[in-house]
C-alpha cells in the first residue's frame, strides 16, 4: 500500500515510474494486501484473544448478568425471590430517594463542569503567555490530580472543620460569619465542588495547555502585526482554535462528573440528610447496605440509560455543529 502511495504527494504520475524498480515493492505490497487468508484470520484472532477474553469475562458478561439481575429479587444474603419482571424498575421510578440522588448528580455535574472547564482554560491561557518557570505552574496545578480521592477528602474535611478548619478561620478574620460547610444542605454540594475543582482542574489545564501550544505561532505574529492586542488575539485566534478541544473536554468532564462517588462519599457521606448523595452512592447503598442486589442493578441500568442519552445528545449536537 504505502509503496504505491508515497510517490503520489510529490505529484509524479505513478504509472510513469520505472517498472524495474517497482517490481520488488509490488510483490511485497501484494503480500500484505492479498485477500483475507486463513492465516491472517488465525493470527488476527490470536492477537485479539487475550484482550477479548478479559473483555467478555469482565465487561460483557457483567453487563448481561446485571441486566438479568435487575429483573430478579436477588439479595446479598443469598435469598432470591426469583424472576419478578420489571418490578424493580417500576419501584425505582416511584422512589423519591432515587430521583433525589439523580437530581443531586445532575446538579453536581452542572456546577462542577463549568468551573472545571473555565478555570482550566483561564489558567492555561495565562501560563501560555510565555511565563517563566513553566514547570513550577504545571507542578502546582497538576499535582493534586495525582492524589487519591481519600487523601483529597481528608485534606478538605479538615479544612471544612467548623471550629478548627482553615476556611472558617479565614472567613472570621475577614469579618464574615463562619459557614457550616458540610452541615448546611445549601452549602455542602458547593464544598464538594470546591474540593473537586482543586483536585482535578489540573488535568483539563494540561489538556488545554497542550492544545494552546499546538496553535502555530505565526497566527499570533500575524495578528499582532495587524495590531490585535492580547485580548483580541485570545478571542479571535486561541478560542476558535481550541473549539474541538473544548468540545472533547466538556464531554469527558460531563461523563466523569455524572459518575461522581468517591469524594462525596468520603467528605459528606451523602449528607446532610441526603443533600449530596449521588446516584452511584445510591446504587452502592441499595446493593451493599440495603442488600438488594436486584434493585441496585435496576438503578444501575437506569443510570446507564441516562449516560447513553446524554452521550447521544452530545453526538447529535457535535454532528450538527460540524455539519
Amino acid at each position: 500500500m504505502s509503496t504505491v502511495r508515497i510517490p503520489a504527494p510529490t505529484g509524479e504520475p505513478a504509472p510513469a515510474a520505472p517498472p524495474a524498480k517497482t517490481s520488488p515493492g509490488k510483490r511485497s505490497t501484494a503480500r500484505l494486501a492479498r485477500p483475507r487468508s486463513r492465516r491472517d484470520n488465525i493470527h488476527g484472532w490470536a492477537f485479539s484473544a487475550p484482550f477479548l477474553a478479559f473483555f467478555l469475562m469482565f465487561l460483557v458478561w457483567p453487563m448481561i448478568s446485571g441486566a438479568y439481575m435487575s429483573l430478579t429479587g436477588k439479595s446479598l444474603t443469598g435469598a432470591n425471590s426469583g424472576f419478578i419482571g420489571l418490578a424493580n424498575y417500576a419501584e425505582a421510578f416511584g422512589d423519591s430517594d432515587m430521583w433525589r440522588s439523580l437530581g443531586n448528580t445532575l446538579y453536581f455535574t452542572l456546577i462542577s463542569t463549568v468551573p472545571l472547564v473555565v478555570i482550566a482554560l483561564a489558567l492555561a491561557a495565562l501560563v501560555n503567555m510565555g511565563l517563566p518557570a513553566q514547570w513550577l505552574w504545571r507542578l502546582s496545578f497538576f499535582s493534586p490530580f495525582l492524589l487519591a480521592s481519600t487523601v483529597v477528602s481528608l485534606f478538605f474535611a479538615w479544612m471544612y472543620n467548623p471550629e478548627l478548619g482553615l476556611f472558617n478561620d479565614v472567613l472570621v478574620k475577614l469579618g464574615i460569619p463562619p459557614v457550616a460547610w458540610l452541615n448546611d444542605p445549601a452549602v455542602a454540594m458547593w464544598a464538594v465542588v470546591i474540593a473537586t475543582v482543586w483536585w482535578t482542574v489540573g488535568f483539563n489545564f494540561l489538556l488545554y495547555l497542550a492544545a494552546l501550544q499546538n496553535i502555530p505561532q505565526q497566527h499570533y505574529e500575524a495578528a499582532s502585526l495587524d495590531g490585535a492586542g492580547g485580548w483580541r488575539q485570545f478571542f479571535s485566534i486561541s478560542l476558535p482554535q481550541l473549539g474541538p478541544t473544548t468540545v472533547m473536554i466538556v464531554i469527558l468532564q460531563i461523563l466523569a462528573s455524572l459518575k461522581v462517588f468517591d469524594q462525596i462519599y468520603q467528605i459528606t457521606a451523602g449528607g446532610p440528610g441526603g443533600a449530596t448523595r449521588s446516584i452511584v452512592q445510591y446504587i452502592f447503598e441499595a446493593g451493599f447496605t440495603g442488600y438488594r442486589l436486584g434493585y441496585s442493578a435496576a438503578i444501575s441500568y437506569i443510570f446507564f440509560g441516562l449516560i447513553l442519552f446524554i452521550a447521544l445528545v452530545q453526538v447529535f449536537i457535535t454532528r450538527k455543529r460540524s455539519a
Binding site: L59, F303, F304
Partner: peptide, 14 residues
C-alpha cells in the same frame, strides 16, 4: 461509554 459503576453489582456477584 459503559460507566464502571454500572458493573460493580454484577462484578461483585461474579
Amino acid at each position: 461509554i459503559v460507566p464502571p459503576p454500572v458493573l460493580i453489582i454484577p462484578l461483585f456477584q461474579q
